[in-house]
Structure formats: C-alpha cells, structure tokens
Design a protein around this nucleic acid. Structure first.
Lengths: 232, 232
DNA sequence: AATTTTCTAAATCCATGGATGTAAATCAAT
DNA sequence: ATTGATTTACATCCATGGATTTAGAAAATT
C-alpha cells in the first residue's frame, strides 16, 4: 500500500443518512484520509466540492432528489481533477457503464465489504481506475454488446460496398452537409455530374433523398470506411 | 480454482515459433486443458477454428503477415462462441481498447508471469472477461478520454437547447429521414406547420438545410437528449 | 390581467433537389 | 480486341424544399 504525503481530502455524498454515517466511521478509522464534509444532498454536495475541492468524492448515485450521475457530470465539468467513486446499491450494467462513461474513477456496491471500499479508494487516489472484478466483467460484457452491433453492421450486406470510389467521395461530402454546388466546386466537376453521382448513390443505397443517404452512411460505418481508406 | 467437466479445448496462434512452444509447454502442464492445435499463421488459425471449434483461442495480435485484430474479428463473425484472449507484446491503450471492442475476452502481455496467463484462461473459460488490473486501468483511461469529448460537446453552447419541445419532435423525425409530408402525417399537423417548425429549427441551429440540421443534431448528442427525456 | 412563447396554419415565390434518358471518353478486365 | 464499368456531362421536367410574411389560439410566465 502506498503512503501519501498529506492526508487525502474526502467528501461523502449519500442521501441515506444511516449509510452515510457508516461510511464516515469506516473511513475515519483510516489514518490516510481526512473527511472534509458529508451531505445527503446532491446539490449541496456540488457546492461543497467547489468550496473544499476534495481529492475524492464518494457519490451515491441512487438518490431520488437529484440524479447522482448528473451530479458526477457537474463535478467533472468543474475540472478540478476531483476523483469520483460511485456508490450504488445495484450492479446494473447500464448504470456501471454510464458512470464510467462520464468519468467516475470507480464504482463500488454498498453491499461490498468495507475493505473493498478502502481498497478502491486507495487505488483511485493513486491515479488508477478501479472496478471490482465482478463489476468490470459486467462492464465489459455491456461494452462488447454495445460495440458488437457497430462492427457487425459493417459486414452483412452493406450497400455501401457497391459504391464506386468517386461515389464514395461524393457521399463523403454529402455527409458534411454540402449541396450540389459545393460538391461540384470541391471536386472540380460540373453540378450536373454531381447530380448523376448522387442519383446513382440513391439507387444503390435504396433511399429517396440526401438526408436518408447521409443517415444510411453514418449508421453503416461509412466514416470508418473512409478513414480506413485514408490510413491504408 | 474451478473444475471443468471436460477438458477445455485450446488453440494457440502465434507467429513467433519460440513463444508458441513456450506457451504450449506451459499449458500442457495444466491438467484442465487440451491443446487441439497450434499454428504460426493467422489464416491457418482461422481454418483450425472452423475445423476444431475450440473453447478458447490464444491469439498473438502482433503478427506481420495478417493483423491479429482482424483475425479475431473473423473468428467472432463465425459465431461459434469461441472465447479469445489476445496476446501482445505491447500494453498500448489503443490496442487494448480495439481488442476488447471487437470481442476479445481477455488481453495478456507476453511479458507477464505465466501464472497470470493461466489465471486469465481460467477466468475467461468460466465466462468472465479478464483484463489484468494494470491493463484495465489503461483501458478505462482510454475509454474515458474517448467519451469525455462526446459529453463535453453536449455542454458549451449547444444550440439544441434553444429548441422547443415540438421542434425537438420534428427534428427527431428529420433525423430519421422523414420528409415534410411524412412528418405532418406522424404528428397529425399540416405540412405547412411542419415547414414553419423546420424553418425555425434552421434559424436556431444556424444551418441552411435539413441535412445540415440532421448532422448538427447527431454531432451534438441529440439522440442522447431525446432518450434521456424518454427515460425521465 | 397582461405579456410572451409556443404551436398551429396558409400564401407566395423562388431555389434546389431528384428522376430519367442520352452519350462520350477513359479504364480495367476478359 | 471487345466488353463492361466508371466518370464525366447535359437537357428536361416536375417535385420538394426553403425563405418570408402574416396571423389566430393556446399555454406559460410575469
């Protein structure tokens, strides 16, 4: 275990007063931490963060009044470098994922052993991100499910594969919001030629207008394809 | 340590013959595993996966001939439920992230202790996702950096915030590729009213046409906003 | 109670977009 | 050498999209 030069300043936010007291006592037993404040209100918590600029915040994310996730976001927005560990009663994959996504450095269940919480605090204060292995498993499963679709979409029958390279260029410019005239100017070809290409694109993608074409492109990994081509 | 009913079938793919032999011997010492094949070629490896349908593949992802990540993707596409652990010489965050993204259930450095590899294999075979804590830290840092921009974009001066709720509905339908008539039909209002709304949207988003409006919406977290409103 | 915002609607006018057919030059592949 | 695909181009016609102005009713705010 690592030694800290000065005591780490910790703030507790938990609308459940009983649990709050329990955690406070638990942390008070540790010599490395200094509790700079406790509150049962998310809004008050944000104010206390501004005032005391703690090193670490333990944030209950299951609060009725204000969403704990939103509170985390607001603290992150302050950009004070405050590390945040989410405390939750639920090991819901979506919750874990969203908490990590908005910048929580850890996620600990209230039902977990107190030693686990202390360990998480130490890890996070030392600059790491800490998720108990049971929760990181959940996270990764969710993560992979979320991104599986993205990559599998790029296979199957992707109509984008039927486009010629010139049509890809035109579609790329369409996905940047250009109209016919702008595209013609950028590709040094006539506007009517662009119209021809765009019409062919519509046929191949089986859509009726430019907006649908752009949406098809974005939803089927067109940007990835173009970038892959550039880096190749 | 968990007991398996039958020996787990393992396939090794590593273009470094020396390392391949080492890992093979290491795994042979374990009584729970059955090595069904080894190869130094990614393409051959994919064929062996099809033939033997192993429970687990150890895949070196630093191969010159064929990209190991691509090989993982192709194995995933077979949908045989094959678990894959990526082996790599580098703890590069981007590599780790991409490997996990395409479905690797684990990522182990070649320099790590052999006990760590065995542990990873056990964990993955038992259905979990396993990343050594040093690597999972890397992963999460990368993950948070990647998504930080997305959420911070949603703050600043987001022009979407000026839209009325009706305008949001209209924009939502625009981002699904609807034209005026379709939107009018779905909202039970006249086409001219839709035009009015859309024009107001253009003004507020400072764009010139529907495609640009749709692009602005998608690039500024409009989908997230709409979903947040639904779940609220 | 008074005011502002929002939602609805229409008219008008012009610009842009989209469908269709034709066609020539170039290039790749058989 | 010939075929087929690609890129370029134009004409024509009609549909849709977009700008602007005006305006009534309802809802929210002050």
């Amino acid at each position: 275990m690592r030694e800290f030069k000065r005591k780490a300043r910790v703030l507790l936010i938990d609308d459940n007063a009983d649990h709050l007291r329990g955690v406070k006592e638990l942390i008070s037993l540790e010599t490395n931490y200094d509790i700079v404040g406790t509150t049962t209100s998310a809004n008050m918590g944000i104010n206390l963060v501004k005032k005391y600029q703690p090193d670490l915040v333990l944030m209950d994310i299951n609060m009725p009044e204000k969403d704990g996730l939103q509170a985390i976001q607001e603290i992150e927005k302050l950009e004070l470098g405050t590390k945040i560990i989410a405390l939750s009663g639920y090991d819901d994959a979506d919750l874990i994922f969203r908490a990590m996504k908005i910048g929580a450095k850890g996620y600990v269940l209230k039902t977990m052993a107190s030693a686990q919480l202390i360990y998480a605090i130490d890890e996070v204060l030392s600059g790491k991100v800490y998720l108990p292995s049971a929760l990181s498993s959940r996270f990764f499963e969710y993560f992979q499910r979320t991104f599986k679709e993205e990559s599998s979409n790029q296979n199957e029958e992707n109509l984008l594969n039927y486009l010629t390279s010139r049509e890809e260029e035109v579609l790329d410019l369409l996905t940047q919001g250009n109209n016919y005239k702008a595209i013609a100017g950028k590709l040094f070809i006539s506007e009517t030629t662009v119209k021809t290409h765009v019409n062919n694109i519509f046929q191949k993608l089986q859509v009726n207008d430019r907006t649908q074409a752009v949406l098809y492109a974005l939803n089927n990994g067109f940007a990835n394809k173009v970038r892959a081509k550039i880096s190749a």
